[in-house]
Simulated scan of single mutants.
Amino acid sequence: MSRVCDRDRDRAVDLVQQAYADGRLSSTELELRLERALTATFADELRPIVADLPDGTVRLWSVGGNLTRTGHWSVPRRLRVESEYGRVRLDLSRAHIPHPRLDIELCLTYGHATIILPPRAGANTDGVHAAWGRVTCKTPARPRPGGLDVHVTGDLPYGRLTIRASRK
């Protein structure tokens, strides 16, 4: 059995809180699930707490083409981006982002991703594994007060990732 890490516990708490906000859970169910999530010791204890809840992940994928999101687009709480050979450009500078934290999971085999952050945002790339790839983050790891908190994870065997602030 593996022990629960803070990231997994935080994700379970976020899912439970979002389900309550969406009207899927009563206040009693919210309290019960939060208590179980916050006191869980092993990963297996978290699974039943969130098994019946949608995780809100949106998947974007391409084999050789480009994936581009710019302008005024609605950003989900979680993005999973998969690209084997293409380029990915996620411009968050004018996007509608209704939550304070955004989780982006990247799977870039040979591709290149550029993520452009809005003012005051920060990006944590500690969860990115780049074997022969490269990660360049030109923003602080933590957001300034009121800024978006972006957490990037994933695998870049030969891919590249660049994160920068908006030039506007």
Rank of each mutant, 00 (worst) to 15 (best):
R9M: 02
R33N: 04
T68F: 05
F42S: 08
P100G: 11
H151S: 09
S166C: 13
K138I: 03
E84T: 15
A95H: 07
R78S: 12
S27C: 08
L38W: 08
I116N: 02
G154S: 00
R167E: 14
R144E: 15
L60T: 03
P98F: 09
A131S: 14
A21G: 09
G159T: 00
E84H: 15
D44C: 04
G71K: 07
Y158N: 14
G133N: 05
D14M: 01
T109N: 15
I116L: 01
E82H: 12
D126Q: 13
D126P: 05
I97R: 06
T68M: 11
S62A: 15
W61H: 14
A131G: 07
A121G: 08
L90T: 00
G159N: 00
V63E: 11
R142L: 15
R59G: 04
T153L: 04
P140Y: 04
L90A: 03
L79Y: 01
E29V: 01
I104S: 07
R144T: 13
R77Q: 12
D52M: 09
R80C: 03
L25S: 04
L148S: 06
D22G: 10
R47P: 03
L148V: 11
R47C: 00
H151T: 11
R120S: 14
L156R: 02
R7C: 02
L46P: 02
L108M: 07
L102C: 06
T139C: 11
L148N: 05
R33V: 04
D103N: 04
Y85G: 13
R78Q: 12
T136D: 15
I163A: 03
A12D: 06
A37D: 06
I116K: 01
R89T: 14
I104W: 00
G86T: 02
T39K: 12
D91T: 04
L34R: 01
A43F: 07
A131C: 12
A21E: 13
E45S: 00
D103C: 05
